[in-house]
Design a binder for these strands. Structure first.
Lengths: 244, 244, 244, 244
DNA sequence: AATGAATGAGTATTCATTCAT
DNA sequence: GATGAATGAATACTCATTCAT
């Protein structure tokens, strides 16, 4: 499975230097948009939308300002392209991983959080989500796009995990009406972590900083408390909580 | 106590039309800062810090650009004043409420989350925090101001609540090393909710929308599971979780 | 003679607190323009025309901004008034001093330079001249005024001194065509000194600073060389110079 | 030597229309800084530093506001560039001329004053110095720049000339303590002339106007009196003066 | 007369976008 | 295609001046 993932992720890097070696010029031409998008990703994540200057993007991509506008009508289109490019569905592969999971669901959930941090949360891609949350109001259409292309599949994936737990009798029943919030109970710590890391996290005193791995572990533990089916006597409080 | 708060909050609206009718000019002068702060709050939340032009703020408040600078030295000070007026300035009263709480700590925590939603989360003020998370990287001075004037007091307030629970034997012991993350376990849902509401929340399909009140209740339940001292037999999983 | 001067100068300070003591209010009212002019003099000299804010002038005079505009139509008029006020002819008295001088003319010239430094060069009034030289281009009409009210009488005074020296056989003959420049040879060091003191002089390293008294003494010596009638053998070079 | 200078100066005008006709754009790009500097010189001199708007400079140079900032980081740098182009940058060549002078020092001094008038005093460049004297107090950074880039080299150049005269036995000894003021005795007439020409000189009656060339000649003669070593008997007065 | 709250014209600088080469 | 020189719209902040009180 790990192999699956790795290869899938590596495909993110556009084709590259290896293949059939056509004229250098032509190859570069073909690669331009990708190089620009990569540069834009880096800078948008690092400095935000408004603070990123297109000239910097062009420079980082090794072309002139004018060239950038040859490929992208304007800064806004560039931004949209960056977002679209970088959330090109990894969900099929993630869903596939989930499908072949044979262990119990608690472990699956913990594994999912851990892996998410490795593959997304700790990478620049996390910055895209933070960026989207920041700029959603200014780019409603992009936000919609993100909603349907990322958030919805994400919710769906989480929901399948939770349902698996319920179906296999590992988790308590989750009322259909509660499922939506249960899903967010899993997603929120991830979304929060991405926001945090790229905002206050950047200027928090070390004593107040969040350790993402420990934070996620703790959240997982707390969640599983509420989710796991009682194997024995349970306090009334716990029973109440588990209906969530 | 609720009364205390309500009256305190209501006093935010400057006295106004009642007394001895001073000179019109004078009355306006007294009202100006409040009007400007209200306008600034609206626009900062709606458009972000950088995208809000001071002239717009002045216009919305019904005065000229110059007048705004009569009351606030610059845009940054205006923003800080908005933060102080709506957030930072309220911690004394919130701390005071906490001090006089006589019930048990679980209820205090639930009450706190509920009240927070009423007084902050559901109001435009929530947009300020979302704004700060969005722009923190671009305005480090503001971020640092916010961190010390809002985040730190907020963490402190939460920590006092948790400590109260521990001290009274209602909550499990929380290892000093864990306290930091425990505090964030309480704050994260609030911070997340504010981010969400002003980003994807604005374009989420109703079926996928978060119901803040229910979401917070659920989070409270989940948290209390992990925090409450066991009154009876407890599953091993729970024991593990409770060390968080 | 000194007495003459002193009393004349002291009259610069408007009447003041001593006389018939009418209602305080009335007295202040009468004094307002003078107080404003004094404040304006100070600030114009210290900071220049453009950099002086009328509000500061008002403040320094102890009145409100609005009051200033009650007495002076605008900033420009205020400036003109300051200049006019402060060059209110001391020339009659200075001419009078000159008339009663009984010593030799070399000494008169040296005395004049020394006294000028004491009474004008080292006082804020010097700043007015520097100010006028700076702003002449922006206030041509004022420059004309200054030309006729200050520069012309000044030239005239110097010329009378030189002529006295010639008439008494103390100085060489000065051809009418040379007189004009001879006058400037005396005035230039004074004008230069005023410019210098309020420009580079304010930021010159101590090692490069001009010591006004020594500088003027030196200039006087140099001038008298060229002016004095030869009492004995003189080098050919000196003869040539003395025609200036 | 004059040839040297003339050619050096003529090179100020960028090569230009001659060679292989590069792309129009490129040719303009090369010419831009010079055009902008010329425009800036004109306007700074005419209106002063603060009163000159960068947009006007751009307009006069026939480009847009933005273009100016392509070549000069900001207004201050533009001004500094003007100073360097027209004054500071010429000291090497002026020093070089001095080095190759073979005649006697009296003539060198006279030549220097004459040439200074031709190349600087009578040109708009003189306005820069007048400008600096006017605005030094308001722009300490510029003043300090001017002091180190122009005044100091200027003093140094004059001092070298005086020292040359002393070393060759043409001038009397100048005590180290007197050197500073001796230098200013040479510079002052020049500085004064520049101030004058751009202030009262603009509105003085023709009969009272200074004829710069004659004025400088006269000053030279006066100075040399004081400086030249006695070739024969000398009056006591002269001896005194020569210590200056 | 005196106040001081209110006004709004004026300006350096940035940066997305264009287009001649 | 690619370049990079040129553009000009956009914005925070100041301060002389006005005028209702």
């Amino acid at each position: 499975m790990a192999a699956t993932l790795v290869s899938a992720l590596s495909s993110r890097r556009k084709g590259g230097e290896d293949t059939s070696t056509p004229a250098k010029r032509a190859r570069r031409k073909e690669a331009r948009p990708g190089e620009l998008l990569a540069a834009a990703l880096t800078l948008f994540v690092e400095k935000g939308y408004a603070a990123t200057r297109v000239e910097e993007v062009a420079q980082l991509a090794g072309v002139s300002k004018g060239t950038l506008f040859l490929y992208f009508a304007n800064k806004e289109e560039l931004f949209k392209a960056v977002v679209r490019e970088n959330l090109a569905g990894h969900f099929p592969e993630w869903n596939a991983e989930f499908d072949v999971w044979s262990g119990n669901t608690s472990e699956l959930l913990q594994y999912a959080l851990r892996e998410w941090w490795e593959r997304v949360g700790s990478t620049p891609v996390a910055g895209i989500t933070k960026l989207m949350m920041s700029e959603a109001a200014n780019f409603p259409e992009l936000a919609s796009f993100y909603e349907s292309e990322v958030m919805a599949p994400g919710r769906s994936l989480v929901q399948r995990i939770l349902q698996r737990g319920v179906d296999r009798g590992e988790f308590r029943l989750i009322a259909p009406a509660d499922m939506r919030h249960a899903v967010y109970a899993v997603l929120a710590p991830m979304l929060f972590l991405m926001s945090w890391k790229h905002s206050f996290g950047a200027c928090a005193a070390p004593t107040e900083a969040i350790d993402p791995v420990r934070y996620l572990e703790q959240q997982a533990r707390i969640l599983l408390h509420g989710l796991c089916a009682p194997t024995a006597t349970t306090s009334p409080a716990m029973r109440a909580a588990s209906t969530a």
